[in-house]
Amino acid sequence: MNKILYIITALLLVLSFVRDKTKTKKSLLKAWKSFSHVLPMFLGVLVFVGMIISIINVELISKFIGSESGWIGTLLAGVFGTFAMIPSFVAFPMVKIFLSNGAGYMQVGAFLSTLFMVQLASIPLEIKYFGKSVTILRNIIAFLFSFIVANVVAVVMGVVI
């Protein structure tokens, strides 16, 4: 999956170079400009994320967001997802561990939804591009929406068990 990204980029870049050298040069310059613009923020976000992930304790969390924990557990899971910033390839196996440690589907649904849609750590970066009011609004609505996701996931997954 990841290799495809590189292959496509390389192909497009070669194609671009063959068609127009100066345009390609301009595009690389733009790429560098956009990159150097966000790099300082990227670095800060990464260190914060590293710390948050290290403080997390899987077993303790599974207890808090257990299937019997109800709305409070769901709310906790949602808040937890907001603070965490875990790449999806870590999050899904982690949720699998949560579930086998007794976490509930509703809680896990809220956690995954806020984890993906509401990212506290990248809010400074989002503000840079979208301004304060849009960023805050989008994150609050997405946070609330996550509980709808949690409910639907709970209902659908509950039918089977």
Partner: peptide, 15 residues
């Protein structure tokens, strides 16, 4: 992720 994503941004911008 950075090299391909930003190169694609650049290409998108120019083309």
């Amino acid at each position: 992720y950075i090299p391909p994503v930003f190169i694609l941004i650049g290409l998108l911008d120019v083309w």
